[in-house]
């Protein structure tokens, strides 16, 4: 395994009175796609949100790019190169597509070359550039959500269920865009319920159960072992393709 861009050690997170993460240990290799898998409610989204700083870790450490970021506020983590695509997409619906993208370029104006690449991956964003983001379809909103994370150079992307509820053609566009990100050297920690997408994109997999990582290994190994899939993830994964 290449050197990790992100390492979680003994991460515990409480939300109100609920103890959600119960000691997460996870290593995310640099420049690769790590799939975070598991049944609904096992703590995948909370793991991403704890890494991003939305929830404070009760104990444990988060090391990112050789720095301990456990106590950092969310904006500092973002400025250090962590891009976040939430499950609900987090689109600013009253702003136009253009305004959403301008805002995403936090360190300066939008880079035209980067924007050209984004338009090539997601042509509807060019078509609806001046339209209010709230009027986009679900798939277009998801495109905008990922495009926004791509608006600046990122080292690590945290992406939560980008294909949820999307038509197969859009799913394939999303998968292609994520593959391109990886080809450009980005590291991705991806929560995904669509096992076909997970199989196609993932280099590594980490499976969660009860707020902990219970299995890690190559994605190919998990994809090849249906008994292991059944044992670790039950029937919640959408097995397609």
């Amino acid at each position: 395994m290449s050197d990790p861009v992100l390492e979680l050690s003994g991460l515990h997170t409480d939300i109100a009175q609920y103890h959600i993460l119960e000691g997460v240990d996870l290593s995310v290799p640099r420049g690769q796609v790590t799939m975070l898998l598991g049944r609904n409610g096992v703590g995948k989204t909370t793991t991403l949100r704890t890494i991003m700083g939305h929830w404070a870790a009760k104990s444990g450490t988060i090391r990112y790019d050789a720095q301990d970021i456990t106590g950092w506020p969310t904006p500092a983590r973002a400025r250090a190169g962590i891009g976040f695509v939430p499950e609900d997409m987090g689109i600013f619906s009253d702003l136009t597509v253009e305004e959403n993208m301008v805002l995403a370029a936090a360190s300066g104006p939008l880079d035209p070359a980067r924007l050209t690449r984004i338009f090539a991956a997601f042509p509807p964003l060019k078509t609806f550039w001046t339209a209010e983001a709230g009027n986009l379809s679900g798939g277009q909103k998801q495109m905008l959500s990922i495009a926004r994370a791509m608006a600046e150079e990122r080292i690590l992307y945290l992406i939560d269920e980008p294909t949820k509820g999307l038509a197969p053609a859009i799913v394939s566009t999303m998968a292609g865009a994520l593959r391109d990100l990886k080809a450009q050297g980005a590291s991705i920690l991806l929560v995904e319920q669509n096992f076909a997408v997970a199989k196609a994109l993932g280099d590594h997999a980490a499976v969660m159960e009860g707020g902990r990582i219970v299995w890690t290994g190559p994605m190919a190994e998990l994809a090849a072992d249906t008994a292991l899939q059944e044992r670790l993830m039950g029937l919640n994964m959408e097995v397609q393709g």
């Binding site: 991003m52 700083g53 939305h54 506020p73 969310t74 904006p75 973002a78 400025r79 976040f84 939430p86 987090g90 600013f92 619906s93 009253d94 702003l95 805002l103 995403a104 936090a106 360190s107 926004r148």
Partner: peptide, 12 residues
Amino acid sequence: QNGQMVESLGYR
């Protein structure tokens, strides 16, 4: 609209 997302983009 969504303060948490604005912070996730790097703004304080």
